[in-house]
Design a protein around this nucleic acid. Structure first.
Length: 600
RNA sequence: GGAGCGGUAGCUCAGUUGGUUAGAGCGCCGGCCUGUCACGCCGGAGGUCGCGGGUUCAAGUCCCGUCCGCUCCGCCA
C-alpha cells in the first residue's frame, strides 16, 4: 500500500492519526532546524514538517529533496500550532489547518530540474508542447482535463438516461470527394488502395438508423486535413447523435438537457431552457453572422430607404444595383484612433467591402459630426439615420453598402472588432447566451466553381414547405433546410438536421449538387441502397466536444483542453510526429514519396 | 496560399540615437536560519541576442534572406 490518504483529504478531525501520503514535492521551505515540504498529488497539497527531534534520519533526508521528486511521507496528523498567539493555519489550501509531522521519508524517484516552473504561466508554446507531460501537472491544465472528463460523463449520463446507445463506428473508412481534405491510410492488403479517416461518422450513423438502432450516440474522433487554428485541430472529438422517429423539437430538448447538465457539472451554473431560437435570416440581418454574439448589442440597422435618391453616389448606386445600405452604431466609440479606423477598414475590405464609410459623432449638432462622407448627406438623411440608429454624442457609425450578404458579413465582423477594441464583454464573461439558429438555407451557389453546394451537408432534408422548389433551379437559393445550429456566445457548438430518408429524394439532392449518377453509385451507393429497405425518418446533430470544453473552462484555445494537441502546423512536438518512415515500410504499402530533397 | 505579431540567461521579459564588460525578476547551485507557506538573508554560476549574409571603425539594435512559434484571412460539405 503506497498511501493511506490523498493530499487533499486530511482535516482537523483526523488529528492524532498516522497517515502515509505519496506525491510530488511541490515546494520546500528550509528554515534551518525545521523543514516544510508541501507534497502534491492530483487531489491537492498537504504540508509536511520535518524536525530532527521527531526523526533525525527523515529530517536529514528531507534536506536533499528538490522540486518534483516523488516521495512517500509517513507521520502523525496534527493541528497546526498557535505560536505567540498567532495561528499558523493557511487559508489558501484546503488542508491548511493540519500538517503531517513526518517520521518517515522515502524518495521513490528523483527529478531533474524542470525546464519551466509549474507555478508560473509561460508563453513559450513549443516548450509546453515538447514537455506536455509536465505542462499537464500545472493546476490549470490538470483542472481542464478533469473538467473534460466531467463533461463527457455528463453527456454520457444524459444520453443514456434518454435511451441512446453508444456505438463505435470505423476509423478506417472511405474517402468522400465532398467536404474537407481527407487523411489517407494506404492499404497493404489491397495494393494501391486507401482508407480515409472519417471527417465525421455521418453516413454510418444514418445507416445505424436504417439498422433499427433508433437512438445512437458516440464520442467520436474525427479527422480533417485542413489548416489549423486556435479552435481547430486535425483530429478532434465530436459528440455525434442520431435518432429515428423524432422531430426537431425532440433534438432540441435532448441537446438542451444535455448542455444544461454539462454546465451544471462543469461550472455549477443553472442554464435556463428551452433556448431561444432565431432564424438564419434574422441572425444575418441583426448580427451579420450565423453564430451571433448577442451579448454585445450593436445590432445592424438597414437604412437603405433613406438613401435611394441620395446625393452620395456610392450609396445610391449600391441600392440601384439591388444592394443595401446598412449600419451599426458603435456606442461611445467616437474617439476611435486613426490606427483603429485603418484596422476596421482592412477588416471591411477583407470581407469584400470597397471601403469603409464612417461618422464620428463629436456632438449633438450635425455640423460636429466628423466624417469623410457626411458632407454628401442631406439634412433629412442625417435626421433619419440619427433616429434609426439612435445616434448620440460620442458614437461611431459604420456603414456598409453592397449586396445584402456582403454587407451582413462586413458589419458582422466590424461589430465583433469594435467589441474587442472597446472590451464590451467586460463584466459579461459569465453570461451564457445559448440559442438555436434555425431555417438555414439548404443550398449555396459557389460562383468560383459555378455549382450549388450544400450549406450543411447533402443528407440534410429540405424544409417540408420548400421541397417542391427543388424542381425549379431558379428557386434553389430560397430553399430552407431543416437544419439547426446550437450557438453559445458567438461560438457554434454544433449543428444538425432532419435527414433525407427516401432514396429518390436523396438521389435528387445529389443531382442538384452536381454529383453524377456514376459518382452517386460509386461513393454513396451503400446509403442509397440502404434507403430502399425501409429507412425510418431520422434526424441528428453533432457537437464539437473540444470547443464545448474550451468554453466551459473559459479557455481561448482548444489546445488547453486536449491532453496531447498538435501545433498549428499539425506537428506533435513531443513525439515529433509526423515523421519519416523507412523505405521498407513504404514498399510494403506500395507507396513512394515524391517529395524533393531540399538542396542546401 | 496571404497578412500581422514574436524569437535576448532554464523561464518571463527590459535593452534608449548603432558605442564601455548585454540587464532585471523568478528558477538553479552553495552557505546561514526551529514555524514557513510567493519564506527570508548572504554569495555564485548561467548568453552562438533563432540562423545566414550585408552595411559600418563598431550591430541585440539598421538592411536582405531564411527557419521556428502564435494569431487571423483563405480553407474547414
Amino acid at each position: 500500500m503506497y498511501r493511506t490518504h490523498h493530499c487533499n483529504q486530511l482535516r482537523k478531525s483526523d488529528a492524532g492519526e498516522t497517515a502515509t501520503l505519496v506525491g510530488w514535492v511541490n515546494t520546500k521551505r528550509d528554515q534551518g532546524g525545521v523543514i516544510f515540504i508541501d507534497i502534491r498529488d492530483r487531489e491537492g497539497v498537504t504540508q509536511c514538517v520535518f524536525r530532527s527531534e521527531e526523526s533525525a534520519e527523515a529530517a536529514d533526508l528531507s534536506q536533499k529533496l528538490r522540486g518534483e521528486d516523488v516521495v512517500q511521507i509517513t507521520g502523525k496528523v496534527e493541528i497546526r500550532p498557535e505560536l505567540d498567539g498567532e495561528s499558523t493555519f493557511n487559508d489558501a489550501i484546503e488542508t491548511g489547518e493540519i500538517e503531517i509531522v513526518a517520521t518517515e521519508l522515502k524518495i521513490l524517484n528523483k527529478s531533474e530540474v524542470l525546464p519551466f516552473q509549474l507555478d508560473k504561466e509561460l508563453s513559450n508554446e513549443d516548450l509546453r508542447m515538447k514537455h506536455r507531460y509536465l505542462d499537464l501537472r500545472r493546476p490549470r491544465m490538470a483542472k481542464n482535463l478533469r473538467t473534460r472528463h466531467e463533461i463527457t460523463k455528463a453527456i454520457r449520463d444524459t444520453l443514456d438516461d434518454q435511451g441512446f446507445l453508444e456505438i463505435e463506428t470505423p476509423v478506417l473508412s472511405k474517402s468522400t470527394p465532398e467536404g474537407a481534405r481527407d487523411f489517407l491510410v494506404p492499404s497493404r492488403l489491397s495494393p494501391g488502395k486507401f482508407y480515409a479517416l472519417p471527417q465525421a461518422p455521418q453516413q454510418y450513423k444514418q445507416l445505424l438508423m436504417v439498422a433499427g438502432v433508433e437512438r445512437y450516440f458516440q464520442i467520436a474522433r474525427c479527422f480533417r486535413d485542413e489548416d489549423l487554428r486556435a479552435d481547430r485541430q486535425p483530429e478532434f472529438t465530436q459528440v455525434d447523435i442520431e435518432a429515428s422517429f423524432v422531430t426537431e423539437e425532440d433534438i432540441y430538448a435532448t441537446i438542451e438537457s444535455m448542455l444544461a447538465s454539462v454546465f451544471e457539472k462543469a461550472r455549477g451554473v443553472k442554464v435556463p431552457t428551452p433556448f431561444p431560437r432565431i432564424t438564419h435570416q434574422e441572425a444575418m440581418d441583426k448580427y451579420g453572422s450565423d453564430k451571433p454574439e448577442r451579448r454585445i448589442g450593436c445590432e445592424i440597422v438597414d437604412v437603405s430607404e433613406h438613401f435611394k435618391d441620395s446625393g452620395f453616389g456610392v450609396f445610391k448606386r449600391a441600392i440601384e444595383g439591388g444592394g443595401v445600405v446598412r449600419a451599426i452604431n458603435a456606442k461611445g466609440f467616437a474617439g476611435v484612433s486613426t490606427g483603429q479606423i485603418k484596422r476596421l477598414e482592412e477588416i471591411a475590405k477583407e470581407a469584400g467591402a470597397g471601403g469603409l464609410a464612417y461618422i464620428q459623432v463629436r456632438g449633438a449638432a450635425h455640423d460636429t459630426w466628423r466624417s469623410p462622407i457626411v458632407k454628401f448627406f442631406s439634412e433629412a438623411e442625417l435626421a433619419a439615420i440619427e433616429k434609426d440608429l439612435n445616434i448620440e454624442e460620442g458614437d461611431l457609425i459604420l456603414f456598409g453598402c453592397d449586396k445584402w450578404a456582403t454587407v451582413c458579413d462586413v458589419l458582422g465582423r466590424l461589430r465583433l472588432e469594435c467589441a474587442e477594441m472597446n472590451n464590451w464583454l467586460e463584466g459579461k464573461e459569465d453570461e451564457l447566451d445559448f440559442h438555436w439558429v434555425i431555417d438555414f438555407p439548404l443550398l449555396d451557389y459557389d460562383e468560383e466553381e459555378g455549382k450549388w453546394n450544400a450549406v450543411h451537408h447533402p443528407f440534410t432534408r429540405p424544409h417540408a414547405d420548400d421541397v417542391a422548389l427543388l424542381d425549379d433551379e431558379s428557386k434553389w437559393g430560397e430553399i430552407r433546410g431543416a437544419a439547426y445550429d446550437v450557438v453559445l456566445n458567438g461560438n457554434e457548438l454544433g449543428g444538425g438536421s432532419l435527414r433525407i430518408h427516401e432514396g429518390d429524394l436523396q438521389a435528387k439532392m445529389f443531382s442538384v449538387l452536381g454529383i453524377s449518377e456514376e459518382e452517386q453509385a460509386e461513393n454513396f451507393g451503400h446509403i442509397l441502397g440502404a434507403f430502399q429497405y425501409g429507412a425510418p425518418p431520422h434526424a441528428g446533430i453533432a457537437l464539437g466536444l473540444d470547443r464545448l470544453v474550451m468554453l466551459a473552462c473559459k479557455e481561448d484555445s482548444i489546445r488547453e483542453v486536449i491532453a496531447f494537441p498538435k501545433n498549428n502546423k499539425g506537428v506533435d512536438l513531443m513525439s515529433s510526429s509526423p515523421a519519416e518512415v523507412d523505405f521498407k515500410q513504404l514498399r510494403e504499402l506500395y507507396v513512394k514519396s515524391t517529395v524533393q530533397e531540399k538542396k542546401d
